[in-house]
Design a protein around this nucleic acid. Structure first.
Lengths: 144, 144
DNA sequence: TGCGATATGTAATAACATAACAAATCGCGC
DNA sequence: GCGCGATTTGTTATGTTATTACATATCGCA
């Protein structure tokens, strides 16, 4: 179900895409969070909207991740909304996760992508997806 | 407790390190497996040796991973023994995981490491550890 | 209208991981 | 060898994350 929002234009066409109600609820919750949320945290937040079972959340997440609108952070078992810039990127995305404040920075690096591509080609390995997560302390937290 | 072993020389100094019984059992099981094993799979395999509770396995794994003798694959919630070559590497290690046969290839790439280092420095982000896992189909499986 | 594909709801259960506490063992100075 | 702190172990219980199975509803479209 399409929903109103106040994001800037770059996001609109994405939000307008035909998300189902549950998908929109989950993506909305992720977009308003400033740290990753686990499926069960999402469920708790969305009980007020009528969600009752983990599966409702997992199913929504599955579609959102599939479409690149959300990402799963494997090292956290949690999810984030995709940052605007990369919404339509097909390539590799890396995440820097601050252990102190929990915030996540999403970035892309074509050289890394190329290196992985080269390795894969050399090995005859066909890449389906890549997980790249760095854990540590972000600049602001280090400053404090 | 130190334990006797019959492994070949290249491995010995590592195995000879003072592993406790549980650690040695877990590392042994991982070393003999040709795919990653989950903590519960390890537990099942090691019940014959007297292990009874998940925590016994998790504790052993924690130490092994800490010492770089085993690695946790975040995208699988499973563990592998470290491949010989990198046992003493301090740097970033990447894993290529075949979705078909389950085998895992471990490799290092200093350029990727440098790129991540550069990004981190630019952001003031202090890296503690990095997860890098590529999922796909390995050469032999693609050939079949 | 009817039909296949997709999405939903619900309950039950599987799989992964940790907390809390007691007991045993190890390393080591004496 | 004795004692003591640090580490490892054993055990129970519980918490967290994810999926299976099945019934129902809705959507897109001929």
């Amino acid at each position: 179900m399409a929903h109103s929002h106040d994001d800037h234009a770059g996001h609109d066409h994405v939000w307008a895409a035909d998300l189902t109600r549950n998908q929109a609820l989950v993506l909305g919750a992720l977009a308003h969070a400033d740290t990753p949320l686990s499926a069960y945290q999402l469920l708790d937040q969305l009980r007020a909207e009528g969600l009752r079972a983990p599966l409702q959340v997992y199913r929504a997440l599955e579609k959102l991740v599939e479409r690149g609108l959300a990402h799963r952070l494997e090292s956290l078992n949690a999810f984030v909304a995709c940052a605007d810039e990369h919404c339509h990127r097909t390539g590799l995305i890396a995440f820097a996760i601050c252990s102190t404040c929990g915030k996540v920075d999403e970035f892309a690096d074509t050289i890394i992508e190329d290196r992985l591509g080269a390795w894969s080609e050399g090995q005859g390995f066909t890449v389906e997806r890549t997980t790249m997560e760095i854990r540590g302390t972000c600049g602001s937290c280090a400053a404090s």
